[in-house]
């Protein structure tokens, strides 16, 4: 599903923020990406959701070498990846419904189908009453649930989340993690970046540990790339 080989990354002419990253994620697996703030978790996710190109090394996504893919082929790949951004990136000029509907509209689905899927999902994350509301008026936790709904609405094969429970109370965090686990059970590969060691311990999923741009610890099942 995902394979990094000797990947390095830098922003512009700056120093390398990721160095010699090697790991592989099997399809249908569930992993945490953890480590202290500034270790490079978000940068690694940026590589995964194709917001940034590596400065060296090889990234394989869905069995395709991303470096050799033509630019116009990348959107199709991105549509198979759902992302919960750390800052949500909700569009305040669209209501909650249209925010969640965005990936489906981009994929060109019919409005009737979009209405059904979005309605169901908003109910699932507990925002069924907020269809017409602008995200700007929602609380932090509600925004986060909306962002999660948008990330999963198109049934992505790979779900990436950057500190998805940072703004949530413990009860809601648990509910959302159960949501991620349910998605994982139906085949979605999940990678969640978090600095919360509590969550990592509680959910017993294998964790990749980043420190100072290097992968310093990784579970047995992610070693194949080296």
């Amino acid at each position: 599903m995902v394979r990094f080989e000797n990947v390095g990354m830098r922003y512009g002419d700056g120093p390398e923020v990721l160095r010699d990253i090697n790991f592989a994620l099997d399809a249908g697996s569930f992993h945490f990406l953890t480590g202290p703030s500034g270790a490079g978790k978000s940068s690694l996710l940026r590589l995964l959701y194709l917001a940034h190109r590596p400065s060296r090394g090889l990234i394989t996504l869905f069995d395709r070498d991303t470096a050799t893919m033509a630019r116009h082929e990348l959107p199709a790949l991105r549509r198979q990846i759902g992302v919960v951004f750390q800052d949500f990136r909700l569009l305040d000029h669209l209501n909650a419904f249209d925010n969640v509907a965005l990936p489906l509209r981009i994929a060109g689905l019919a409005e009737a189908e979009i209405a059904a899927q979005v309605g169901e999902l908003l109910e699932w994350v507990g925002l069924a009453d907020a269809l017409e509301v602008s995200p700007a008026t929602l609380s932090g936790g509600e925004k986060q649930r909306l962002a999660i709904a948008r990330a999963v609405v198109a049934r992505p094969e790979l779900l990436l989340a950057d500190e998805p429970t940072g703004n949530l109370d413990p009860e809601l965090s648990l509910r959302l993690f159960h949501l991620f686990e349910e998605l994982n059970k139906i085949g979605t590969t999940v990678l969640i970046a978090t600095h919360s060691s509590e969550l990592v311990e509680k959910f017993k999923h294998p964790a990749l540990f980043l420190a100072e741009g290097r992968l310093v610890m990784r579970p047995e099942n992610t070693l194949r790339a080296s």
Partner: peptide, 15 residues
């Protein structure tokens, strides 16, 4: 920001 988001969730440039 909106354009970057659309781009990241898989919008073609033509969209």
């Amino acid at each position: 920001e909106t354009i970057e988001l659309l781009h990241l969730i898989g919008a073609q440039d033509g969209f």
